[in-house]
Design a protein around this nucleic acid. Sequence first.
RNA 1: GGAGUGGUAGUUCAGCUGGUUAGAAUACUGGCCUGUCACGUCAGUGGUCACGGGUUCGAGUCCCGUCCACUCCGCCA
Length: 585
Amino acid sequence: MRTHYCGDLTEKHIDKNVKLAGWVHRCRDFGGVIFIDLRDREGIVQVVCHADVKNVVRIAKTLHNEDVIYVEGQVQKRLKERQNPHIKTGTIEIIALNIQILNRSEILPFSLEDYIPVNEELRFYHRYLDLRRPEIFEKVRFRSKLTHAVRAFLDRNGFLDIETPILIRSTPEGARDYLVPSRVYQGKFYALPQSPQLLKQLLMISGVDRYYQLARCFRDEDCRADRQPEFTQIDIEVSFMSEEEIQTLIEKMIRSLFKKLLGVTLNAFPKMTHREAMRRYGSDKPDLRIPLELVEVDDLFEKSSFSVFAEHALNPESRIAALRLPNGCALSRKQLDEYTEFVKIYGAKGLAYIKVNDREKGMEGLQSSLLKFLEPNRVEKLLNRVQAQTGDVIFLIADKAKIASEALGALRIKLGHDCHLAQEGFAPLWVVEFPTFEFVDGRWQSVHHPFTAPKVSLDDLEQAPGQAVSSAFDLVINGIEVGGGSIRIHNVDLQKKIFELLGIHEKAAEAKFGFLLRAMKYGCPPHGGVGFGLDRLAMIMTGAQSIREVLAFPKTATAACPLTEAPSTVDKKQLEELGIKVIKN
RNA sequence: GGAGUGGUAGUUCAGCUGGUUAGAAUACUGGCCUGUCACGUCAGUGGUCACGGGUUCGAGUCCCGUCCACUCCGCCA
């Protein structure tokens, strides 16, 4: 039907007769001469309809945006003053000899012009139109290149692409499962995988040695800008590799992807323990592009007459941390009040601050509601500790450690963006030695998952579960958790012990994870692996503001598909076959 | 489950302290125009102000509720 893509035509094709097909991007009718911008996947080319080619003009007069047409014509070089530097085919144009209308388009619900913003809801309701816009389509095209490059890298490194089932059994812990009812076994349900975690471990026991899969994963939890109910994971598992070896391999992959697809050379990824990340950045996924750091100041408030701070200074469960904002004195009272409101979202009771109007003048040069509670020598120590300079604002939070860290960590990010402090580019890092357990709702829970190998002895684990670091690690880029992994437990006794500590007793463990425990008895190799959010990676690499931009058909924050209107009710008959009765409310 | 922001023409938005006929740009329709490329130009059409209730002489505007979208907290082993 056609000989070229519109966007692929160059000066090499001058004088050639070409056959094109595509969408009418725009028409400019001068009465005598008519210009058509013809668009396809690869770009736009200008078609010129001259008045003396009667058949062509007759049809061109009737064209509307997004009509689908076929054009035969001759490629011609444009005169210098007629060239358009804004499109890649701007030095040539097509002199139309024949035009046919392949299909008409109704008037569009929104403009496809890139300079006109469109409501996201409307875009996704008509996603097929949205994707006609080149800058939108590029993100989906990028994703295609990304998956291809991932597969090529892993294939080169001896990984086998193995598909695992989508209909699996529900396991306890973790996110809420999406359930699929069974017709054959009424009252029983399959679960969609939150990740193929256990299956890939079984593949290691099979001797697969190196496994990967671009795996669809499903989690029935609330969405965020970087979270969808279904997403794709670059799922990897290897046998006989240490944590460091795995990280080295993955780092090599990530660097090759950035090099190949973006032409960006990433430096070696720094490694930071989870403890250090929380201490310095108040987050387990620090954005290193922002040059602000939390500073520990607990000791400065011991025995202080300021009772609120003094109490937290003595409490080992608490934390007092400071954050210095250079030139923060420029902030208005209103802005400071807004930041105080902001930290309350994270449970902080308040936000104290000291304005350093003039560092030379000592206490006289400071402005803060705290000063009346604090001895001058403590204030001086504090200012030295944070290296305060004239014009700075020092923010302080004293609270339970988790709250103080997270609130100040979030404030750090917000200040970084509000004050435009973030550096350009990409800032990757490994966060390592995540805790094995955390104490939530009166019981121990896995921070990563129950199959994560701890880095301490079984004795230490039982003595102080809260202190035990694990082999779990995350890869963070620009403050976004891109992926995580760990060395897995390959000893059945240790695995049983972990289940016990998590309150999953022997009988329950056997019922729910029996297949894993059984498999582990037959020569389970030491193994470990990672799972990477392909969508998040694509989002970071394309600079997209939300994960929805890199999905062809994304869902809304309430997990609905705006285009197909899923989820939907189903026929009574379907429910009867499944033995399901719907109870409203 | 909770907090915040938003919903006005096909689209993107304005609409002040409640006031008489709800505007702009763009799109669309009909003219004019032989070198534009976000063409220009003249004229015209186009509104359940998300939905429901309330206050008021009078509500796009104020109050209450509901729905939808987005951001965040919780949640996401």
